[in-house]
């Protein structure tokens, strides 16, 4: 028998059976389905300090591996193993507003300083809480490890409670509760491989794409990075000057503002985001693609990129869950 920890409690499990079977036997309720390492329903997070057997992570995305995710049905109990169910993996902590900066197109950059230890990858998202009942998720546009701050892009939603508060009422020095991080839209390349990165999104879906691009560039990514920001009209784009400057500073970074209803004098690529993005897909088999923003567009981009040859494990997107009514947003 071997002692392991799961969600903070200790359990004695037999070495001959999977962690999933062992925990189920002890009456622990946890989700599972195939028990053969394919459906990924029983995924849990392991302490990365313990040695993780690569077999426990077979078939997982690189981003899931980087977060220490393992499949409980493939996992064998080893002494000192500590696991957490994914719903409990995130923590809630206070953060202080240190800067508010309008970026244009109704988007406000909100810079937060977490007041407790907090680590996240650029491009992951956090959920902010206003009172007990209003929680909204925003992606991290900067590299939190650099200055300890989180840069979030908050688009004003008509009648939106959180976005209204952030735009109109929040002041530097105010505190807010945040939970996270979550999501698998981030850059991971431990083997330092060379591959093209395609980033495409709409609206404030730019924030995670920017986070991925900044992190990739900071880590000296080799290979083309193309960021395509799509909008209905040119005035819906934001952060253009900064992205243009980033492209000027890095030869392997390309910025493509893409507008559906472009005016003749607008200095943008005219067309629908999915078509323009697919046009930049030079080597689909090698490409890692990140898609963020409006859910219908993200679904379309994922499907088209996959059909064009991008491997499913190399397509990253976060489920942007729209709030049921605009008034509650």
């Amino acid at each position: 028998m071997v002692k392991i920890r799961f969600d903070g409690s200790e359990y004695e499990l037999s070495e001959d059976r999977s962690v999933l079977d062992g925990l189920l036997d002890q009456g622990i309720r946890m989700p599972y389905s195939c028990k053969s390492g394919t459906c990924q329903t029983c995924m849990v997070q392991a302490d990365r300090d313990a040695g993780l057997d690569p077999k426990w992570q077979t078939g997982l995305k690189a981003t899931d591996k980087a977060r220490g995710y393992v499949l409980a049905c493939q996992c064998r109990p080893v002494e000192g193993l500590a696991l957490r169910s994914l719903v409990l993996a995130d923590s809630t902590l206070p953060a202080e507003i240190v800067e508010k900066r309008p970026l244009g197109a109704g988007v406000m950059a909100l810079h937060l300083r977490p007041l407790q230890d907090f680590t996240a990858f650029a491009g992951q998202y956090v959920t902010l809480f206003l009172g007990d009942d209003t929680g909204r998720s925003y992606s991290i546009a900067n590299i939190p490890g650099e200055d300890g701050l989180l840069e979030l892009h908050v688009r004003r939603i008509p009648g939106g409670r959180m976005s209204g508060w952030i735009h109109d009422d929040a002041a530097v020095g105010d505190r807010i509760m945040l939970r996270g991080p979550a999501g698998n839209c981030f850059y991971v390349n431990e083997a330092r491989e060379e591959f093209p990165i395609l980033l495409a999104g709409t609206g404030s879906g730019l924030a995670p794409l920017l986070g991925v691009a900044r992190d990739a560039l900071r880590q000296g990514h080799r290979g083309e990075i193309t960021l395509i920001h799509g909008a209905l009209r040119t005035e819906d784009l934001y952060f253009r000057a900064e992205l243009t400057a980033l492209a000027a500073a890095h030869t392997n970074f390309r910025y493509v503002p893409c507008v559906l209803e472009a005016g003749e004098r607008d200095d943008v690529t005219a067309g629908s985001l999915d078509q323009v993005a697919l046009g930049f897909l030079g080597e689909p088999r090698a490409t890692r693609a990140y898609f963020c923003g409006a859910p219908e567009m993200v679904a379309l981009l994922k499907r088209k990129a996959f059909l064009a040859g991008v491997a499913s494990r190399n397509i990253f997107s976060d489920p942007f869950i729209p709030t049921a009514t605009a008034a509650a947003a």
């Binding site: 394919t38 459906c39 994922k302």
Partner: peptide, 17 residues
């Protein structure tokens, strides 16, 4: 149509297995 691709890929893996 309307089915999340990641969820679908996981299901297809189960089917292929």
């Amino acid at each position: 149509d309307g089915v999340d691709m990641d969820a679908q890929i996981a299901k297809q893996k189960g089917f292929l297995t």
